[in-house]
Design a protein around this nucleic acid. Sequence first.
DNA 1: TCGAGTCGTTGCGAAGAGTGCAACGACCAT
DNA 2: ATGGTCGTTGCACTCTTCGCAACGACTCGA
Lengths: 256, 256
Amino acid sequence: MSQTVDRALSILPLLAQGPADLGQVAARLDVHKSTALRLLRTLHEHGLVHRQQDQRYRLGARLFALAQEAVENLDVRDIAHPYLKELNAECGHTVHLAVREEGEVLYIDKVESRYPVRMYSRIGKPVAITVAAVAKLLLADLPEQERREIAEQLDYPQYTARSTPNPAAFLRELALVREQGWATDLGGHEESINCVGAPIRGTDGSVVAAMSVSAPNVVVTAEELLALLPLVRRTAEAISREYSGTGEPPAATAAP
Amino acid sequence: MSQTVDRALSILPLLAQGPADLGQVAARLDVHKSTALRLLRTLHEHGLVHRQQDQRYRLGARLFALAQEAVENLDVRDIAHPYLKELNAECGHTVHLAVREEGEVLYIDKVESRYPVRMYSRIGKPVAITVAAVAKLLLADLPEQERREIAEQLDYPQYTARSTPNPAAFLRELALVREQGWATDLGGHEESINCVGAPIRGTDGSVVAAMSVSAPNVVVTAEELLALLPLVRRTAEAISREYSGTGEPPAATAAP
DNA sequence: TCGAGTCGTTGCGAAGAGTGCAACGACCAT
DNA sequence: ATGGTCGTTGCACTCTTCGCAACGACTCGA
């Protein structure tokens, strides 16, 4: 849309491949050397481009600083919330969002069920880490060694007969979750409550958060809840795309 | 130097702080909304800016991809070489550059001594990992646990009476090197040869390479070699700045 | 030592690109 | 309905950017 800016930005991917001198940049852009020089100067002033002592240009440190600052200021909760609301509107059940923090798993957002019978939980509260679907999703992404260490150190309270009984069972469950890309909690925390969850991933593919849909037996059976799995996964993937800044503008206003 | 590009690039640090809508961007740039819109569009087309579903703008994934691609294509050797040559010109001794790779430490560049008596080494050859200054520097930067594991698994050949004898001594040496920010090898590999070395660090402060100056006793004493330490450290820091894309253009042509 | 070649840099006039304006449509809340 | 906000578009004006040609610094080889 803007020619000058367009040209300037085209320099960046070019330099990402390695250092280049003025002539090379001008040639690749198909512009006069003087034009390329002015563009490179501007990029340089903003620190996006660095000039090494052999006079060639490279991408500069500011680029890394910007990328880093951006991820630090990214808030999963902000981004996920509208999706969680939408999911709740579609299925009616309670929707949770959780992250891992210092060895715990915490709920950081929640959209309440439309049904009168609700599950108990509170934003900011640690999750039942050995049984909750979101906890399994978040821990399943850790490297194997770390998973083992954590599994050993945890307590395994027997909330119900279906609660995860011991480290070995937990590790087996995590391996399964890791492989299939989704998780469940079928009456492991409270006898009558089931959950299905899916992971939210960042740019590098690592799991940054997890979401789940929970509903009591009296409202829907475990089978009916599991039928929601594709919807839950699609939602999680949409949030992942949005969070990592990948993918298209969600809904473009079409047609002239 | 280029107004349009200048404005466009000013948007990036602004968005790094968090999402912003069109009005906010226009206000911060002190331009008309329509102008801001066109700039944002161009940035968007290049993937540097992402539009979330609430219409606000954020930094996009392409920025991270660029930063990543740039570091992958960075070659320490290319960047360091002129500095190594300069250092050699100043002190006359052999200068080495080394990196860590798959549990080994390898020489990747070398500038030969001007003196007839030279130290034996070869580019691409693994260094004596338990005694060499560059090896200590590279290993000292690892997390403590990893250092311990490596120290346990190594052999400790007694090249000389001053060679590092065992894991405990090696770990103590690494801790010292880590703290003081430089390393020596005083006759630990060959009785008559001494080295002083300093680390080269990347943007994030981690050690990406190490350099050292080596000279035999017959040319300079250990004390005389140690007197070069400030010079070696300054050189390593200059390379670090250049490598991480920080700092000013090394030597600007001044004065009108 | 000189001259041919390369590379980065600068001043200038032409023209093309970017700018601000005003108005429109969509959306939201009162 | 209605007033407000926000993103978007077409247009005319003008400021910015472009390519050119020429300069200076530097390297290489004769």
